[in-house]
Design a protein around this nucleic acid. Structure first.
Lengths: 159, 159
DNA sequence: CGATCCACCATACAGATTGTCCAGCAAATC
DNA sequence: GATTTGCTGGACAATCTGTATGGTGGATCG
């Protein structure tokens, strides 16, 4: 279940210039348009490409502070209800359960350091949350990326 | 520096159905095509929309294991060289410097738990890295999202 | 108050792109 | 050897894009 070189090149191309249409891609990749179309459909069907949504910068919306929060939760309450409660907080951008056991881990944003306190208070108010410990991200030397993984396609013959 | 309701509706629409063209958007939002075009341009220019790249699922590429790694680094070496070294590892998806001080925080993926060990070894080999502690993400009850922030646009009159 | 600026609407037109279908081929599969 | 799969190259109508125009109402400013 891997992707081949053409897939990788297509993904790379689209990542660098997302506005490209199928036709233009086919020209750049020197393959037939139908091929690009088929590959794209296949990548989406396989779940490799999960979407083409616009990428939004929370910072540009005024959410300048980003932090990672580890939650200790009450064991008996289980992960799900807590995760549900967290999902209702817009500033909570993602939530993961961790290997630790009774812990959840989440990424949050806030408009300022003071605002972060408000957000953390919201989190603490979620039933089942016992304690939180947060770490503020000051800088992001390597922003989220996946391309290196994609570019790293050797001669896996697929299928 | 906020966005108004129309911007928000446009972003929401595009997130839900990214393949929509400008024209179709204008129909759905009941505004003129030129307006949508102008809004989109403005959002991109302002940095609110940072791109339209395809979203890739590492899991679909065979990277089933995701983990968060906290790095303790040698103070004198500084953040940057270390971050640089980390950036060379494809499995390192993002790196943040944290409020702690001598710490870096990163998200990594791997093909398996055993493979994670390999990745961590790569990280430890980066000059300046003293120690690592990693937490494996078992599940992701709330996948990364930004829409709630966008949807949360009251009557901020912009400008 | 009148002039001006700005965002938006409505419309237009040429050129390009999309969705779709078809036939021919080559390599891999059974 | 027969079949399936993936790619090519071509073709079509319908649609969309880039770009431009003029007109309108609201807000700002001297």
């Amino acid at each position: 279940m891997t992707i081949d070189q053409l897939d990788a090149r297509l993904i790379l191309l689209l990542t660098e210039e997302p506005r490209l249409g199928v036709l233009e891609c086919s020209r750049r990749l020197a393959v037939a348009r139908g091929t690009v179309q088929a590959r794209l459909d296949r990548l989406v069907a396989r779940g490799v490409i999960t979407g083409f949504g616009p990428d939004i910068s929370p910072a540009a919306l005024g959410y300048d502070v980003m932090a990672f929060v580890t939650l200790e939760i009450r064991q008996i309450s289980g992960h799900d209800p807590v995760a549900h409660g967290l999902a209702r907080i817009p500033e909570v951008l993602e939530v993961h359960t961790t290997s630790g056991g009774g812990d959840l881990f989440c990424r949050v944003v806030a408009r300022s350091n003071a605002d972060l306190q408000r957000v953390i208070d919201l989190i603490v108010d979620v039933p089942g949350v016992l304690r939180t410990s947060s770490v503020i991200a000051l800088d992001t030397p390597v922003p989220y990326r996946v391309l290196p993984l994609v570019a790293d396609v050797p001669r896996h013959r697929d299928h």
